[in-house]
Design a protein around this nucleic acid. Sequence first.
RNA 1: GCUGCGGUGACGGAGUGGUCAAUCGUAACAGACUGUAAAUCUGUCGCCCGUUGGGGCUACGGAGGUUCGAAUCCUCCCCGCAGCA
Length: 338
Amino acid sequence: MQKLIAVLGPTAVGKTDTAIFLAEKFNGELISADSVQVYKGLDIISGKDLPAGRQGLPVSSKFKLQKKDGPYSIGYYLFEHILIYLLDVVKPSYSFNVSDFIAFGQKFLEQILEKEKLPIIVGGTGFYVKGLLDGIDTSPVPIDENLRNKLKNFDVLSLQKFLLKENKKKFDSMNNSDRNNPRRLIRAIEIASKIKNFKLASPAGRLKIKNDERKEYDILMIGLKCEREELKKRIDSRVDKRLKLGAIDEAKVLFKNYEKLSEQVKNANGYRQLFEYLKNEVSLDRAIQKWKIAEYHYSKNQMTWFDADRRIQWFDIGKKDFRKNLVKEVHAWYNKDI
RNA sequence: GCUGCGGUGACGGAGUGGUCAAUCGUAACAGACUGUAAAUCUGUCGCCCGUUGGGGCUACGGAGGUUCGAAUCCUCCCCGCAGCA
């Protein structure tokens, strides 16, 4: 079976750093799984950091791999001799989503494997990683802008009623949290209204992916974590550092075309708060404070997500021999059936 | 010094005699998640006991008082802000 590594964990634990380290040791290439770093022009605030000690490498070291029509132009970063895919994929106006990510991810995964290199997926967007590795079964139903616009103004109760009418089974299968989540309700309605056109529809209102359509990989999932207070400190200093690097200027540039920005960009950590500042809604200090808090929340949510995946093997970055142990672990896995 | 307004749970801020351990927002904590996922949503949130119903204790600046009953009314004191001196 073909091998692949995933380096996961909350923001600011040093995933990229570790992944590059592993790539060098095991002849690998990286695939970034980050819902914000896919955007061009979102560099400083989104934290497209170079590994520690290698700062200063110009962005011009980015190559265009190929151009496609549509909003995409898939590029990759080169950090010394290590390639990182799926950074700077789309314009800030494009509404990027899992489906896009999976399409590109699979493509690059195969490409790296063909070169007989080790693919290393790095990223904090758990849903993307899951989508790429495990697949998601609703992918055949595309977004219906017209329907969404119509549903946008419905309140939760109306959406629930609508879904109940369209597909009761789906509604019944949702938990309380999701039933109160307009976004989930709208997507469920979207699927329900289209589902009759898809022969793969299952009774529960989901779409199945046939097992043989998915390739099986030998995956080593590495989780990076650290003590919470320590993580908060790391987040604080990262934010401060980004501010020094020109975060506000970066926000200003994007702010010029604010109306055109996708929701993803408008709401991304740091951007959202800095935009509030640029809109004169909050002071700069308050915006920075809110940015940090948003990062805390984000890291917490990531931990909740990753904790639920029992396949992940955790490493505490605070432990002294963390890297040594990590390499030992990866070696054992890499050589186990050779 | 006088006058006016105000002091509420970690913070902001409702409540102006009983249905108040006290709306709501934030923070905090826990969780969910199958096409916006750095998004969105859910739960908990004074302390103690109980598996639930529930029970007990301490609380609305402080001390007294009125009342069957007070965060809410009265008196005095302390503190903050505004205006007048």
